[in-house]
Structure formats: C-alpha cells, structure tokens
C-alpha cells in the first residue's frame, strides 16, 4: 500500500494521485457529512467542496502531525458543521434530530449486499449503545475525549478503552 506516496504526490499537486485519494475517501467523507447535515443535495455539495478545499490547502497538511485521513475528516466535519450553522441552512428549516449514524445505516433501503455492507449491518445490529455513542462522537462528530466524557457522563479513561474495544469489534466485522 503506497498511501504515503500518494499523499506526498498530492502535496506536490499531482491530480492523478488526488483522484486516487478522492476515490478512496469520497464515500467516507460523504457519510460523515451526510450524518451531520442529513440532506442529500447539501451533503453532496459539501463533500465536493471539502475535496476542492483539501486540494487548495494541501500545503497545510503535515504527515508528522497526523494521518491524511484524519486531516481530511476534520475538514469534512468542520465544513458540514459550518453548513448547518449557515443562514441558508436554517432558512430551509432543517431540524437536526439527535439520531446516530446507525439509524442511517439501518434505514438505508438501498443498502447493497456486498460483504462490507453485510458486515457493517451485523456489527451495527449487535453493537452496544455505548459503542455507538462513542464512535458517533469521536469519529463522526469530532468530539474531543473530554467533550465525549461529559456528553456520555463517563470517565475519560473509560472512553479510551471502550473506544479501543469498539473499534476492535468493528475491525473483526469489516476487515
């Protein structure tokens, strides 16, 4: 896996490398954004904006400071949250319920029967509520450990170990 090389080429403004990264992370970003904005058209638009933005500020990514994926998902979350705070968004009267990402997965009518999808569905079905909450907050919403611990009324240390165990189960289900 030459992910590192792709990222280096991306920093050198190589469109081909960026296209590969786009194809790798497009759905992931789309999912994170959709989970926040809960609107198909807006999610699509924000997702595209996020990649354009990532391209233009590729200089600001530093491999030593974290994963490319982490950097990208941060841009995506912020762009989506910004969108929900924008005037146009509020004017459309969107009301964001407090549903978790699992509800989206469970209600995906078009969920295909690929192994990934089956694995994820299984994982989600048997997932403890605490796992869902932790993953939702840490990965989908970008809460800090401290914020998550307050939100879930749980010590920080517990968040850390619980998260580790939850991700372990996820890996068993999808990898």
């Amino acid at each position: 896996m030459d992910l590192d090389n792709l990222v280096i080429q991306f920093k050198n403004k190589d469109v081909k490398a960026f296209e590969k990264l786009y194809n790798m992370y497009r759905d992931s970003m789309h999912g994170v954004i959709y989970n926040i904005v809960r609107d198909h058209a807006i999610a699509e638009e924000v997702m595209q904006d996020v990649f354009v933005k990532a391209w233009h500020k590729s200089d600001s990514y530093d491999v030593k400071k974290g994963r490319f994926f982490t950097w990208l998902i941060n841009i995506a979350r912020n762009a989506a949250i910004d969108k929900t705070r924008s005037k146009s968004f509020k004017n459309e009267g969107k009301n964001l319920n407090s549903d978790y990402f699992v509800d989206i997965i469970q209600s995906q009518d078009s969920l295909d029967d690929s192994t990934d999808a089956i694995g994820i569905k299984k994982f989600v079905d048997k997932l403890a509520k605490k796992c869902i909450e932790v993953i939702e907050l840490l990965y989908f919403k970008g809460f800090t450990q401290k914020e998550a611990s307050e939100e879930l009324n749980m010590p920080i240390g517990t968040i850390k170990t619980r998260n580790r165990n939850c991700i372990k189960e996820l890996r068993e289900a999808v990898l």
Binding site: M24, Y25, R26, D27, S28, M29, H30, G31, V32, Y34, N35, H40, A43, E44, M47, Q48, R67, F69, I73, F101, I104, I105, Q108, S110, L111, D112, D116, A117, I120, F123, I135, Y139, F140, I167, L170, R171, V174, L175
Partner: peptide, 17 residues
Amino acid sequence: EAAIVKLTASVAPKKDI
C-alpha cells in the same frame, strides 16, 4: 483507519459522484 473508512462510507447516500 480502514475500518473507520468503511464504517463512515456505509453512512453515505449511495451515489457515485
């Protein structure tokens, strides 16, 4: 990372952009 990418991707509306 791969596991998170798959999980988050499964939330995405199924549309090939």
